[in-house]
Nucleic acid binder design. Structure first.
Lengths: 236, 236
DNA sequence: CTAAAAAGCGAGCGAACGTTCGCTTTTTTC
DNA sequence: GAAAAAAGCGAACGTTCGCTCGCTTTTTAG
């Protein structure tokens, strides 16, 4: 599996994201026709991530967003109830979408080493395909309301539990060498996050997501691998 | 070296930080007597990190800061020129202080394995001792002006170059067998950052900084180690 | 083609922001 | 203890914020 193939197969377009956004927030959006609403939501979604990821969501004014999206203030507010809801809308929709894709992607692999490799690779590829959202989601989580903030934390912990579960299984089967599953999962998560949080760094060094994935997988399996070896990666 | 000992020896009190802050921004601070200025700067420093790390610097109003610090709006502005300068003041002072401490701390160790372990451990211990500042520095860097933003990036890259340099040296001496020093340094940095960015996670699981340091060092050396072994840690 | 419905618009509203300044209180000096 | 200096104060200022609403333009329906 390479990133090019992942992107082709996963096919998560902005249009899909915005269709999901419209469906889950239908009441707050005044625009009647789905086609019109989605087209403009795409511009709003793009502009929000572009401006926010540069200066922060709190620092982005609705006038900034109006300019960046090409919509007037009035038209903007026909597509969202408030600035606060815009944040919640983008976060919750992205969360729902990403967790669905992740769940589907590595369920089929069986041997622990291959499963761990597939999980790491899929996380990295997905975060690459939706990098602006991942960055936004991480940096702006603390501006959410208490309830949504809790959901964001839960979502993050669920990811770690996936890694930890695979490692625990590998330990039990003797494929891994009894590394601490929780701590190992935590540092895997840290390495994955660094990819989308510090993209400029890796871009400058011309490191592709494929190469980064290879490196993280090698490092992880190097630490986990038991005597009967788990260094080879399954096809996913 | 344990964290308890590090904290005793390094002795970086808020008073030291604020004395440095006053000295480097003397012109912008209207208060004449050093003792008074430092005492109040400590309250401002504490309050800024406390409120900012919860809701973000941009979302923190000067009235929030007045309330949290116990100083009136007028008194506040006798200790800083503007909100923007307050951000720059905290960031640049912390940067100067931390880089000075880091430089001194592992220069003495010689063998590559011990040196890498000491570097990782010191970074973790320092980030633990000044956790609020490290978190603040990471999250609010993008609100800095262009010039200061550049300095913050440089400071981060310098840290990574320290790790990469030690690994390269270890490769040359045959202690390490690491094909990619730059990527390894990057993921070490990522693991260190996760400690102060996700403290709540580790606190909830009751993982001490000492245990986390042991884990990161073991994982790193496990990946790097060459034939003549570098798993043992020097006393530092 | 026309009338109704939908979408788009931007000046203007009250609230809240960062910052100031004339005044009071506290501390220092002689 | 009186005069001078320093520190502390908070109402008020101009600006900018999120958001609204009456109006115009575009699209749809008959």
């Amino acid at each position: 599996m390479s990133f090019a193939r992942f992107k082709r197969e996963a096919a998560i377009s902005r249009q899909d994201i915005c269709r999901e956004m419209l469906a889950s927030h239908r009441a707050a959006i005044k625009i009647q026709k789905e086609e019109v609403a989605i087209r403009n939501l795409e511009r709003i979604y793009d502009a929000t991530l572009r401006v926010s990821n540069q200066k922060g969501f709190q620092a982005m004014t609705m006038r900034d967003l109006s300019r960046a999206s090409g919509l007037s203030m009035g038209a903007l507010y026909d597509h969202l109830a408030s600035k606060e809801e815009l944040l919640e809308m983008i976060q919750s929709t992205g969360r729902r979408l990403t967790s669905r894709i992740l769940k589907e992607s590595y369920a089929s692999v069986e041997d622990p080493g291959g499963k761990l490799a597939a999980a790491i690779r899929t996380h990295l590829y997905l975060s690459e395909a939706m990098q602006p959202w991942f960055f936004f989601s991480y940096m702006e989580a603390r501006h959410l309301g208490d309830k949504e903030k809790q959901l964001a934390k839960q979502s993050e912990q669920r990811t770690e539990r996936v890694f930890a579960g695979i490692i625990r299984q590998g330990n039990k089967q003797g494929a891994f060498n009894e590394a601490d599953p929780n701590l190992t999962a935590a540092v895997i998560k840290a390495m994955v996050q660094d990819w989308y949080l510090k993209r400029w760094k890796y871009a400058k060094r011309r490191i592709s997501v494929d190469r980064y994935a290879d490196f993280v997988i090698k490092a992880t399996l190097g630490c986990c691998a038991g005597i009967n070896g788990a260094g080879k990666e399954a096809g996913a």
